[in-house]
Structures are given as C-alpha cells and as structure tokens.
Amino acid sequence: MKLPYILSAALLLLTSGAHAQTASAETELVKTTIRTFFEGMRKGDSTLVRSTLAPGAVFHTIAAKNGQTQLRPENPSAFVKMVGTPHKEVYDERITFDKVLIDANLASVWTPYEFYLGSTFSHCGYNSFQLVKLADGWKIAHVIDTRRKDKCK
C-alpha cells in the first residue's frame, strides 16, 4: 500500500526539479537579453541594442518636476539612434538583478542601477523591464525607470 505513495512522492520531486531547472534556464535567458541591451549601450552598438527589443517596444521614465511626479514617454528609436551616434564618453549603466519573475511568455525584471558617463557618476534609480518570449527569444517590450542623483541604495 505504501508503494503508490512513495512512487507519487518521487514523481512529484522529479517533476518539481525539472521545473526548477527550466525556470532557472529561462531566468538566465531573460537576464542575457538585458545584459546584451546594456552591453550594446556600453559599446555604442545600436544594432546590438535593437536586437534586444520587441517590435513596438515602449520606454518610460518617472521624473519629478516642481515636486510633482511625471511619467515621460521616451522614443525607443531615438534611444537606439543616440546609442549608435558617436559620443565621447561610454554610456555605462551598472545594474544588479533584484527580482526576475516569469510566467509562460512574460517576464518582469527589477534592476537597481547606477549610470556613469565614462567614469563619472550621472544618476541612479531602478529599472522595471517587461519582456516577452517571441519566436527568436526573450525581447524587451517595456522599460520604465526612476532617476535621481542621490539615495542610490
């Protein structure tokens, strides 16, 4: 009588282990897309940045003006063009991965960051990425961030 319970428990453990490995692999693929986005920024490689974006991607930033919170849209095409336009200083956004959540073909990623122009600190904040898994892999569909000069961590 105990054998069916033991087999059921073993099957459950094997299934959950396989799910954990799949989830871990997907998490790494999502992180790779975001790392590639920032690698393209650092290299000034607009093609590399563009390769990480889903068609119709949307960018926003949250800013304060006169003590009021504002949601400002940013043009992804203009951003990609800016990255690829020759510039003196390296655009260096240093991130860490705080949270990565995945459900099916949707990923949500939270990354604190510090942004440097070359070696000079510019600003800091948090990025929130929404990614979608398309036929050619995980792509960034939406980025929204905060920006400030102090209280970075």
Results as ranks from 00 to 15, higher is better:
G118T: 09
T52C: 11
I95V: 15
T111L: 02
R72F: 04
T52G: 10
G118P: 04
R50N: 13
A20R: 11
I6Y: 14
L101E: 06
Y91C: 00
K151E: 14
K99V: 08
A63L: 13
S122W: 05
F38N: 06
G40N: 03
D136E: 08
I6F: 14
G44F: 00
L29K: 15
E26H: 12
T32V: 08
Q21G: 03
T96I: 10
I62M: 14
T111M: 01
K31F: 04
E26A: 11
K81V: 09
D98E: 15
L134H: 09
G67V: 12
L14Y: 05
K31V: 09
K99W: 02
K81C: 03
Y91Q: 01
D136I: 00
E89G: 09
P76R: 03
M1N: 11
E114H: 07
P86I: 01
K133L: 08
S108N: 13
V30W: 04
N66E: 15
H19D: 06
T27Y: 01
T111C: 11
T33K: 06
R148C: 04
A57Q: 12
V30R: 02
E93N: 06
L3K: 14
F121H: 06
R42E: 09
A64E: 15
L12G: 11
L3I: 14
D98L: 07
E114D: 11
H87E: 05
T61Y: 12
M41S: 05
I102M: 06
C124V: 09
V80A: 01
Y5D: 08
Q68L: 15
K65L: 10
K81S: 10
L12I: 13
V143A: 01
T32Y: 10
Y116F: 14
H19C: 04
P73Q: 07
R94T: 01
N105V: 05
F59S: 03
I140V: 15
S51W: 08
A18Q: 14
V132P: 00
E114T: 10
G17D: 11
H87F: 00
P86V: 02
P76E: 10
E28Y: 09
R94F: 00
T32D: 13
P73M: 02
T47I: 06
S46I: 04
S8I: 12
T85D: 07
A23C: 08
P4K: 12
M1G: 13
L48I: 03
Q21R: 11
A9S: 14
L53P: 00
T96F: 01
F97K: 04
K151F: 08
A141I: 04
I102F: 01
G56L: 09
R42W: 09
D103G: 05
A54I: 09
G125F: 01
F121G: 02
L13W: 13
Q68Y: 11
A104S: 13
D150L: 04
T36I: 12
A20L: 11
I144F: 02
T47N: 10
V100L: 06
A18I: 08
F97E: 00
R148W: 05
V90Q: 07
P73C: 01
K151A: 15
P86R: 03
G17M: 07
I95E: 05
A135C: 00
L53F: 07
T33E: 02
W138N: 03
Y5I: 08
K153H: 10
R50H: 08
Q130Y: 00
L106F: 10
R72H: 12
T120C: 00
G137F: 10
L48S: 03
A20F: 09
V132L: 11
E39H: 15
L53Q: 07
L11A: 15
